[in-house]
Amino acid sequence: MDIENRDEFIIKKYQQEEQIMVQLFVQWCTNYQLNPAELYQRAYPGQPQSAVLTDAIDETDTEEMDIDHETLLDVLQMFGNDDLAFVVSEEIEKLPKK
């Protein structure tokens, strides 16, 4: 694999994984009746909403898929979304304890 193809492969792989991260975030928000666009805006005020986020919101299934709070936080942080992870952790604190 030459350098150009390798770089292209790495970029595509990152984009696919980023989409999965955004889908998990949107599904988690849906599970807890939270607005993902609003949480994103709180985390990144003044930044335009991501097209990936908009697509994920449009495509989200209303069926609940169990996503553990810690897993979501870990995934967000793995992608460098520390501000969003902080906002999510604030929302977790507001949720009723099981």
Rank of each mutant, 00 (worst) to 15 (best):
I57N: 02
E64P: 04
P45F: 05
D68V: 09
T54F: 07
D66I: 11
P96A: 00
E90H: 08
Q77S: 12
L76T: 02
K12W: 14
V52I: 05
E18Y: 09
M65T: 15
K98P: 03
F86L: 12
T62S: 10
I10M: 15
K98N: 07
M21C: 14
M1I: 11
R6N: 12
Y44D: 03
P96D: 15
V22G: 03
Y44L: 02
K12A: 11
I57R: 04
I20S: 06
R42P: 04
E90I: 02
T60H: 06
V87H: 01
A56Q: 03
E18V: 12
G46K: 02
D55C: 05
E63P: 06
E18P: 06
A51K: 06
L72M: 09
V75Q: 10
Q23G: 06
N31R: 01
E63I: 10
D61C: 09
D83Q: 07
N5S: 07
E90R: 09
I10N: 12
E4P: 04
I67M: 11
S50E: 04
Y32F: 09
A43Y: 04
T71R: 12
D68E: 07
D61H: 00
A37R: 01
L39M: 02
Q23I: 01
V75M: 01
H69A: 13
T71L: 15
E8H: 06
D58R: 00
S89E: 14
K12C: 10
V52L: 11
A37Q: 13
L84S: 04
K94S: 05
W28E: 08
D55W: 07
I3E: 12
K13M: 14
V22C: 01
E70H: 05
D68K: 03
M78E: 15
D55K: 06
Q47V: 03
A37D: 06
P96C: 13
G80T: 05
L53Q: 01
E59Y: 04
Q27T: 03
E17N: 08
A85T: 05
D83R: 02
V52H: 04
N5G: 07
V52Q: 08
L53H: 02
I20K: 03
A37V: 03
T62W: 15
F86V: 10
